[in-house]
Structures are given as structure tokens and as C-alpha cells.
Design a protein around this nucleic acid. Structure first.
Length: 424
RNA sequence: GUGGGCGUAGCUCAGUUGGUUAGAGCGCCUGGUUGUGGUCCAGGAGGUCGGGGGUUCGAGUCCCCUCGUUCACCCCA
């Protein structure tokens, strides 16, 4: 293949129709459902001050090595970063605008992480998500999880599993510290059995050792103490309430004591959606949890928060794997064939479009045969044909591409005629 | 960041142990007389084999580098 001068940067891609249509349809479906649940859309900047994202946790990969950051042209320059996720920006917006809680928002858009690309993992990827800020009630957790779960169902996905855990609370109030100490103790005692990578992770962020998928570590991890046994009373009660709520609406889930999210800000509820139709490395199609300290970290008032983000690209892969959520058809209503030069096609198209009928035509004065082929390919159920005879008669020919039937019509009646046919 | 696979026309792929003008299907274009699609038939355009270097009388076919992609690790959506 001859190398073009430029190509989409590594880890990015052009999404062409019909894939783009499908992606829009998915986002549209999510918007509809979020709207029905009382969430309003937030459109936040694609880049923020780097500091906003540093609050995600200096020890996380997302912050420490995957950020697309840069300086602007200001004096002094400001260090900015393309957003690697959206929750932090939402919390920044909350701290900035102080909307009346509970603030229920949804969002969609591109995010950026400087990672090694592979299937279902891009440097620019799209997520949809929701957040509820200012509600500590476990009912908020439940609402959020149910929304995500129902969204997957509405797409037709059947093989999506929900994993649930509680991470407790950090600081003096909670018992995460006690758990971490117990975990570290356990891991230290078994150092010799752990992989070298696990030992590195142990130094940086002990909790995430639990996330290791390496065979070598599995035995030690299996015997490790679990967070749920250490929960403080408040967290335990919250967790129980969340489970009870999910039970009440019949959402299946599995308690995963070793589910720890990749970002440091999570507290108490944590969950993940896995599409089991996809290979393990890319089956995480969404995840979220509670982040009760994040708004405060960003200079806002102490504000609890809960939300999730879903990976649109991976969800579409899962849809492919399950053979659901086909790309919606996008044919025009009419294709106009004009062998008299093109001006007639222009006039007829405008007439139709003004009447709200989708119309297309061809360019370049091609033969009738070629234009009919184009009409066929467009998928339009009808063709309008304009030749010398029609021009002389002041009419056009309307052809039904399905049965091949056609007859002459006055242009002024065309729109009404087609509207009637379409509604039938 | 580490390791493995792959990279041939727009797309999906064939290309014997290195050897004449690199092939197929699909798609695309043009025809098949008198203005008409989906089937059929006949022509045609389009790759120098991701890029660069090397080995060789000669490389798509071997070696090195590089880019991209893919898989695993890592991490995550």
C-alpha cells in the first residue's frame, strides 16, 4: 500500500459512516435515557489545567505517564492537559459554579490517554457517563447503577456482568487505612511468591496489587484479606443499602472483593461492567463509583459524588460480538436523476428538501444508466427522473425503486405525493 | 514501557525451495444501439508488494532498522 503523506496519529482513527452513524445512535440512546432519569448534559472543556487531573492520584498510571499535557502561549504559560477522563472536570465545574445539589449530569465526548494502543484501546476514545454530586444517599448509587445496567440492556447486550465492591472510606472516619495495613502485611509476608511487577505496585499503591491478572500472583491474592471485612459501620450500612436496592429492582451483580478501580479518588461504592463476549483484556466496558472527596480536593465544598463512565468504543465492539445494535439505515428518500445537465436536479432537490424530504443527486453529467446505479446504491425508495421529454412537458418522472413502477408528475405535486407514499 | 504475530490493488486475501511484464474475489468505471438500477456478459482503471537500508547476478519472498497494526504484560473504557 502506498504510504500516504499523513495518517491519523497513532492510537486515533477516523470513524466513517456508517460507523459514525452507529456511534451517534448509541450516544443518542444514552442521552435519551439519562434525560429520562433527570440528568442534564454538561459540555465541559476538552482540556483543563493539569492540576485538575493530578487530583486523580499521582500514583495512578493515568496521571503519572498517560497524560497529554502541554503549555499554552500565555505569559506565564499555563500547563494544560487533554482530559484523560471526565469526572475531574465535572467536579471542577461543580466547585466553580456551585449548582444546587443534587446535581445530576450526563456527558459524552472524547478523552485522551497516552497508552500503547490495541484492540478496544485508543489514545482518543469516547465515553458516555453520568454523575450525581451532592447526594450521599445510597439511592443515588442505585439509580446510577441501574441506569447503566438498563442502558446495556436497551442496546440488546445480554452478556454484561456487574461487579460490585465497597472500598470503604479513607482517612480517620473510615477503615481503609486499617485494611491497607492488613493487606500490606499479607503481601509483605508473601513477597517471595509475588511477581516483580506486583512488588513494584505494592510500593506505589498496595490496593491495586489486587488487580493483578498474573498467574503467579493469583494464589497470594486469593488468600488476601478483603475490604468488605474491614468496613466501618457507615460504609457497611451504605453498601448493604446499595445491594438491597439492586436486589429490589432485580439487577444481578456479583460482589468482587478484589475490585479496585484505577483512580485513587474512589470511596465506598465501586463497580464495573464487563462484557463477557469480549476478550478479557478489553472486556471492561464501563465502571464507576463514589468519590466523596474529589470536589473538596478541587477547592469546592465537601460534596459526595457518584457516577460512572462507559467506553463507547468497547461497547460497540461488544455489540458486534453479540450481533446486536446494528447501524441504523441512513438512506435518503429520493434520488434525483437528471440527464439534462444538472440544473433540473438542483431545482427538484431543493423543492423536496424544503418540504422536508431527504434528496440526493449525482454530479458530473453521467449517463442515465450510471445515475440509476447511483440511485440504487443510495438506497432511496424512489427516484425522480428528469430528461428532455420531462422538461418539455414541464413534468418529472417518479419511479418506485421497489417495483419499478413509474409515472409522470408535476413538480409542484411531487413533495405531497412523496409525503403520502412515505407515510403509508 | 516490555515481548510475540502481522503489513501485497479501495476492501478481503493468493502469491511454490528468492528468478521473466505481481494475481483472485468484491468494489469502482465504461460498454452490451434507440433515455432507466438491482441479474448476466464484455472490456477497463487501480498495487512495485508500509517505509528505509542490506545480502544476492536477481527479493513481495532472506537480514537489519523504522512506522503502523494486532495480541500478551501493564493499565484501563
Amino acid at each position: 500500500m502506498a504510504e500516504p503523506t499523513f495518517r491519523a496519529p497513532k492510537g486515533t482513527r477516523d470513524i466513517l459512516a456508517p460507523d459514525s452513524t452507529r456511534l451517534r445512535a448509541l450516544v443518542g440512546e444514552f442521552a435519551l435515557q439519562a434525560g429520562h432519569n433527570g440528568f442534564g448534559e454538561v459540555i465541559s472543556p476538552i482540556f483543563e489545567d493539569l492540576g485538575v487531573f493530578k487530583r486523580l492520584g499521582e500514583s495512578t498510571d493515568v496521571v503519572s505517564k498517560e497524560m497529554f499535557d502541554f503549555f499554552d502561549k500565555g505569559d506565564p504559560p499555563q500547563q494544560l492537559a487533554l482530559r484523560p477522563e471526565l469526572t475531574a472536570g465535572i467536579c471542577r465545574a461543580y466547585a466553580e459554579h456551585r449548582p444546587t445539589p443534587p446535581w445530576k449530569v450526563w456527558y459524552e465526548g472524547p478523552q485522551f490517554r497516552y497508552e500503547q494502543p490495541q484492540a478496544g484501546r485508543y489514545r482518543q476514545f469516547t465515553q458516555v457517563g453520568v454523575e450525581i454530586l451532592g447526594a450521599d444517599d445510597p439511592q443515588a448509587d442505585i439509580d446510577v447503577i441501574v441506569l447503566g445496567s438498563r442502558f446495556f440492556k436497551s442496546l440488546g447486550l445480554r452478556q454484561v456482568e456487574l461487579a460490585l465492591n465497597s472500598l470503604g472510606r479513607p482517612g480517620d472516619l473510615g477503615s481503609r487505612r486499617a485494611y491497607e495495613q492488613a493487606l500490606i502485611e499479607h503481601l509483605e509476608q508473601n513477597r517471595s511468591s509475588l511477581s516483580s511487577q506486583a512488588l513494584v505496585t505494592l510500593e506505589r499503591n498496595p490496593l491495586r496489587v489486587l488487580d493483578s491478572k498474573r498467574e503467579q500472583d493469583s494464589e497470594v491474592i486469593a488468600r488476601a484479606p478483603v475490604m468488605v471485612d474491614f468496613l466501618d459501620d457507615e460504609s457497611a450500612g451504605h453498601f448493604a443499602a446499595v445491594r438491597a436496592g439492586l436486589d429490589a429492582v432485580g439487577i444481578a451483580y456479583e460482589i468482587s472483593p478484589r475490585l479496585v478501580r484505577g483512580l485513587d479518588y474512589y470511596t465506598r461504592t465501586a463497580f464495573e461492567f464487563a462484557a463477557t463476549a469480549l476478550p478479557g483484556a478489553q472486556n471492561a466496558v464501563g465502571g464507576g463509583g463514589r468519590y466523596d472527596g474529589l470536589v473538596e480536593d478541587l477547592g469546592g465544598p465537601p460534596t459526595p459524588g457518584i457516577g460512572f463512565a462507559l467506553g463507547v468504543d468497547r461497547i460497540l465492539l461488544a455489540c458486534d460480538a453479540e450481533g446486536v445494535f446494528e447501524s441504523p439505515p441512513s438512506a435518503v428518500d429520493v434520488f434525483v436523476v437528471d440527464v439534462t445537465g444538472g440544473t433540473e436536479a438542483l431545482k427538484v432537490c431543493e423543492l423536496l428538501r424544503e418540504a422536508g424530504i431527504a434528496a440526493d443527486r449525482s454530479y458530473g453529467g453521467r449517463s442515465m444508466k450510471a445515475q440509476m446505479k447511483a440511485a440504487h446504491r443510495s438506497g432511496a425508495p424512489f427516484a425522480v427522473i428528469v430528461g428532455e421529454d420531462e422538461v418539455v412537458a414541464g413534468e418529472v418522472t417518479l419511479r418506485d425503486m421497489g417495483d419499478g413502477g413509474q409515472r409522470r408528475v408535476a413538480p409542484s405535486l411531487l413533495a405531497r405525493e412523496l409525503t403520502e407514499k412515505r407515510t403509508r
